[in-house]
Design a protein around this nucleic acid. Structure first.
Length: 289
DNA sequence: CGTGGCCCCTGATTGC
DNA sequence: TGCAATCAGGGGCCAC
């Protein structure tokens, strides 16, 4: 499933294959794929047709395509199963094709949003006031991600200290730090030898800095692997193909030996999903609240 | 207002 | 073998 590294690969693909192209026609094949668009499918089509895409931007797991000469962007989120593909116009429709964007040029390709589970979608939004990056207004509350050079580390630490919540919740809270999902949260916590239920307020400054380093390292490692395939015509690698699977140390490794100490890894139900951890390397907090 | 929990969706997998 | 239950999980939304 796409987290920050996968979305960045998609962004690079869009920058290469879609920037500067003008929209000739738009088809919305499933209403849920545009549910975040305030005016619905017909309005999405009407307002996007004739516009020209600028260079794709990304923050966390969101990406957006600015429209040239407008304070307006197409905002995209891949959800669990979304893909943005640049396909030859004659390629057969994917089973879960939700949105198609045709262009006025003769490059012979079109942009397709394919999404089996329809957790993701596209929508048009105004640019947030005074945002140099052209951030869409509806994601103005999303924090910068750990790979953003302007990520504010001292503020992040202070926010962690002030919260009355636990570590993994904080890692998944997109208003504190964006781009971290369930998989990379478990990976970073394992690398930092921290338990997912540890209260954030107990983290010292060096400890939170260390955690952040591990978050960045695991994301950069995934990005390196994912970055190998964006030469192709496809804008993204398949988020479900699992190219990073072999490199995972925690996620999905229930009962398998911890790669540090050999203790069987554990899985715990957590917020309708799972947390994987080493019971020896990642000791639970003394007073779980 | 901060925090935690529920639920949207579809296909693969598991269990009886 | 077939059908139902379970699981996957990002994030909006709502209740407390």
């Amino acid at each position: 499933m796409p987290e920050l590294p996968e979305v960045e690969v998609v962004r690079r693909g869009l920058e290469r294959w879609v920037a500067g192209r003008t929209v000739a026609a738009v088809e919305v094949l499933h209403p849920r794929a545009v549910r975040r668009h305030p005016g619905g499918g017909a309005d999405f089509v009407a307002r996007l047709t004739g516009q020209t895409f600028g260079v794709a931007m990304r923050r966390g797991k969101y990406l957006w395509l600015p429209l040239e000469g407008r304070d307006l962007s197409v905002l995209g989120h891949l959800g669990m199963s979304g893909q943005l593909l640049v396909q030859p116009t004659e390629a057969p429709d994917e089973k879960h094709l939700r949105i198609r964007v045709r262009f006025t040029d003769d490059a012979g390709t079109e942009l397709r949003f394919v999404d089996q589970r329809t957790f993701g979608g596209l929508s048009l939004h105004e640019t947030a006031p005074e945002s140099p990056e052209g951030l869409p207004d509806v994601i103005a509350h999303i924090a910068r991600d750990p790979l953003d050079p302007l990520f504010d580390e001292p503020s992040y630490h202070l926010a962690l200290r002030a919260k009355r919540t636990t570590l993994k919740r904080a890692l998944l809270d997109q208003s504190l730090i964006s781009g971290v999902g369930n998989i990379y949260a478990d990976e970073a916590l394992w690398r930092a030898r921290l338990h997912y239920e540890r209260p954030t307020a107990t983290l010292t400054r060096p400890r939170s800095a260390e955690l952040l380093t591990h978050v960045r390292e695991v994301m950069n490692a995934a990005l390196q692997v994912g970055g190998t395939s964006f030469d192709s015509l496809y804008v993204n690698v398949n988020g479900e193909s699992g190219y990073f699977d072999r490199s995972l140390d925690a996620y999905g490794r229930e009962d398998e030996p911890c790669r540090r100490c050999g203790t069987p890894m554990r899985r715990r139900p957590w917020m309708n999903r799972s947390s994987y951890f080493c019971p020896r390397c990642q000791r639970p907090p003394r007073l779980p609240s």
